[in-house]
Design a protein around this nucleic acid. Structure first.
Lengths: 156, 156
DNA sequence: CAAGGATATTTGCAAATGCATATAAATCTG
DNA sequence: CAGATTTATATGCATTTGCAAATATCCTTG
């Protein structure tokens, strides 16, 4: 009777550079830092930028939904929105049917601000995938979509 | 003469759910939140946990190296280490040849603490890859490794 | 080998963060 | 349908964060 291999390998056996969460944290750390540097001049924090990017694509989500999409704590987002409203980049609007809820909408100025920073995001994105074929990228994104469904807590 | 397609698609055209950085931020946000919840009881922040995980695998890095591996700001790490030292989980040791530098080493207690939290990490990791074949995972990790090389700033 | 600049780490400080809670409104339940 | 529970958002507060600057040491170059 031989020993069975352990169900879960130890981290040392996998190796940091084969451990997907480690690699993903490293990559996103750099991606976010790189954007942050570019946006410091525009007065946009990572959170504000993310909210703006989501709002450029999703029309009028509730604050709770926006927090999920933008991966920002709800209380943090609440305050980031205060600033974005002050800057005139987004506006809050009472939900028509649920008077607890607030919908968030990007303003024209907000859209212009996003158009300004999108080239940076696109360039960083392109840089990430340098030397990776379209087929590989598609397969990669397919896996990411599965992973998000596996791990996500919210149904959005 | 027809218009050429734009070199960089707009975010709305790609769609949030096909935009790799968005998906990766969402996934790592959940991954980190999930670990944070499990570790709140152990008194370990994300930063402290990451430092410990790296130290469990990499022997005696300098603080600067550890900051890169753990994806933590150097000044933040400096303070996180203060706490880890107080908790007896790591120790600082003067570099033998460069007296500016400090090497960080995990203690036995630190290793035990990491052994305690590794099952959580492994379980979350396994959950992420549910329904994804080994071949797919290997290809996925291969792409991540390329991406890290593409995007990284430091040669480690 | 004496500046002058680069590198490693820490620390001051203002701002950001996140947990817990407050408030208000919707929904459920007997 | 009244009271209890859940949901959406905002806010008080202690902690954490990160940028800058300080400190100490190392390296380079004339």
């Amino acid at each position: 009777m031989k020993d069975q291999p352990p169900v879960t390998a130890r981290l040392g056996e996998i190796g940091l550079s084969n451990f997907a969460p480690y690699l993903m944290n490293r990559i996103m750390g750099r991606y976010n830092a790189s954007l942050r540097e570019e946006m410091a001049g525009l007065g946009l924090s990572t959170q504000k930028m993310r909210a703006l990017a989501v709002l450029a694509v999703i029309e009028g989500p509730s604050i709770r939904e926006l927090a999920v999409y933008a991966v920002v704590e709800q209380s943090t987002l609440s305050r980031a929105l205060d600033q974005l409203v002050t800057d005139g980049l987004v506006r809050r609007e009472a939900d028509a049917t649920d008077s607890r809820a607030t919908r968030v909408l990007i303003t024209d100025a907000g859209r212009m601000a996003f158009e300004q920073l999108w080239p940076h995001m696109a360039r960083t994105y392109a840089g990430m995938f340098r030397g990776i074929t379209d087929d590989e990228r598609r397969a990669f994104v397919g896996i990411l979509q599965k992973m998000l469904i596996n791990i996500r807590k919210h149904e959005i």
